[in-house]
Design a protein around this nucleic acid. Structure first.
Lengths: 333, 333
DNA sequence: GACCGGAGTGCACGTTTGTGCAATCCGGTT
DNA sequence: AACCGGATTGCACAAACGTGCACTCCGGTC
């Protein structure tokens, strides 16, 4: 029942109808604009329509993935920051250029856009892709550019319910947007973020509906997630959204937790054994996560540095997308 | 002596200097513009420079291949024309949309731009690429977008000298531009287009300097050429540029030649045996050409249809780039 | 130290592009 | 046939962009 097809057929802001003259024109326009360097005016004349329509056709062509724009940093003599991070932490770094003067929420937005565009070329057909939730992923999901794939599945990495809501709307919106962008199935994980009792989790984990999801997670070919950090600054969604009570926070403190990925916690050295809360969390076992071929971590804002350090120590990511400020900070302290 | 390095180092309109701050800024700007959707104004502020400089950085980023824009026609449900051509002639067709109202020289220009951009992604490292010459290829060579490759070589397919000139400047300009765009070596073929006596060709073909070129041609991984057509309309370069005298044209007529590729002639049915002029021509044996893995034919203008038909019958191309008008004409008669 | 040439910069202007809005089209309903 | 709502269009205006030109900066030369 959870397998929901998120097609590109009829939908929300449903674009591409059948072969229709609309998308044919979009292709023609895109070729004339991007491959022949005509102006929109010239294209409008040839297509016997108005310039504004051409402008709209083109933005549609971009949004639907008809036109793809990629920026390659010249192979291995890449920018210094990225190289240093790669050497020191053994992850492929994608540093998003952002001047220091920019405020946090704009940084998030810009990291999100660039992350979305970095991820798109990595999404293949026949993939199983895990997606976490949180403010970072939410932002990313808003900026995905479309691309058609076949038989791919997006699977929710961890439950999203809390004491106030079932969390369905929030987490599933994110998932839905991913599915829609790539024409893929989505599999929700309808459990709370944390069980109240570890025993309930154990019991639920035996349920067939849950095992289906866990099985998908084991077969993931890619995972996309942010990090939570307990350090200073803005607390991440998990720490402030009513998912944890005072007592929980105290045990985290006692266990020397510095952050989490998909509500699974870890310490500064990357270890996660014997962290009590993990027994009640619905996130993927971090060892399972580490076996996924491609693990993309998106981070924006320096307040997440501590959590990020832990995640890197744990080797949770193969690819790291982060803003320039955080990149510097990651290296220079 | 013929192996000339056409680097991207110091040159003509030499752009990319070392790692310099210039190209670093170009990368940053490109990321901010194409991946973060900032305006040039915003980028200028962050880079502490003027908007016009940003505009220039961006166009540099595009020209040097830092930014790559591709338009994919949605896999196999591609436009009707392209499918029909593929079925009927067994070549991958790339139809360049052009309204009928456009004049011939503009059609050539637009086909050339789009051809250049279609070719670029196909150019690999370690490739050996044969290039013909003529008005079509000349136009293409003017619009190549750069892309860095290693250890690739462009080799001239046929001699370019005629009774008036050695043809060096014209053909070698084309070759040079290709080499420069991809940072590749170029190998000129310093012989006339046609020898006066077949015996001279036989003799020359034993010379080591020539054999080097012939050997490269045998090892080509890609070939790029136009077609000449004897039919009506504007005569191709070869037929009007002083390469052939009246008598030659008569023998072509007698041999029922309809066109040529790289100065090797063929008939309407694709055959080329016993065409006298081919014994004196310096182009690659058409059987050798047909063994090349990827053979890209660029055609603009309906006057070339007859030659094109012959070339297709001979199976000379694996990929065909042509304007919409010619595509229609090719199918509907 | 004066001079020179080429590359890089910002300004100002004209061109090109994005977008809110009102008008129109179109398929389905009453 | 009249009506309705959503999608699509062109218009008009504002925003964003490209480029000739004059100026500056810098390294080499006399």
């Amino acid at each position: 029942m959870t397998g929901i097809r998120v097609g590109t057929d009829a939908d929300e802001q449903a674009p591409e109808r059948s072969p229709g003259s609309r998308s044919r024109d979009a292709l023609r326009a895109a070729q004339m604009y991007y491959l022949q360097d005509l102006t929109m005016n010239a294209i409008a004349r040839e297509l016997r329509t108005s310039r504004s329509t051409v402008s709209r056709l083109l933005s549609m062509a971009r949004e639907t993935g008809l036109v793809q724009i990629q920026v390659n940093n010249p192979s291995e003599r890449a920018p210094a920051l990225e190289q240093q991070i790669r050497r020191r932490f053994a992850v492929e770094a994608h540093v998003v250029p952002v001047a220091d003067s920019v405020n946090d929420s704009e940084v998030l937005d810009r990291v999100a856009i660039q992350a979305a565009r970095t991820i798109t070329p990595l999404v293949d057909s026949n993939a199983i892709i895990g997606v976490a939730w949180g403010s970072t992923l939410s932002a990313v999901s808003h900026h995905l550019t479309r691309k058609q794939t076949h038989d791919s599945t997006f699977v929710q990495l961890n439950g999203a319910g809390n004491t106030q809501t079932t969390g369905i709307t929030y987490a599933s919106e994110i998932l839905r947007r991913f599915g829609q962008a790539y024409g893929a199935r989505v599999e929700q994980f309808p459990v709370p973020a944390f069980f109240d009792h570890a025993e309930t989790k154990t019991a639920m984990w035996e349920e067939r509906s849950v095992r289906r999801i866990l099985d998908l997670q084991r077969r993931m070919t890619m995972a996309i997630f942010g990090v939570g950090s307990i350090g200073a600054g803005v607390p991440s969604h998990v720490y402030s959204g009513g998912y944890l009570d005072r007592e929980d926070l105290e045990t985290l403190d006692r266990d020397e937790v510095v952050g989490d990925v998909a509500t699974m916690f870890f310490r500064a050295d990357g270890s996660h054994r014997d962290i009590l809360l993990n027994r009640r969390s619905t996130g993927p076992d971090l060892d399972v996560l580490s076996r996924v071929r491609r693990r993309i971590c998106v981070v924006s804002g320096e307040s997440k540095i501590d959590g990020l350090r832990g995640a890197l120590a744990a080797g949770l990511a193969t690819d790291l997308i982060l803003d320039e400020g955080s990149a510097r900070r990651l290296l220079h302290t």
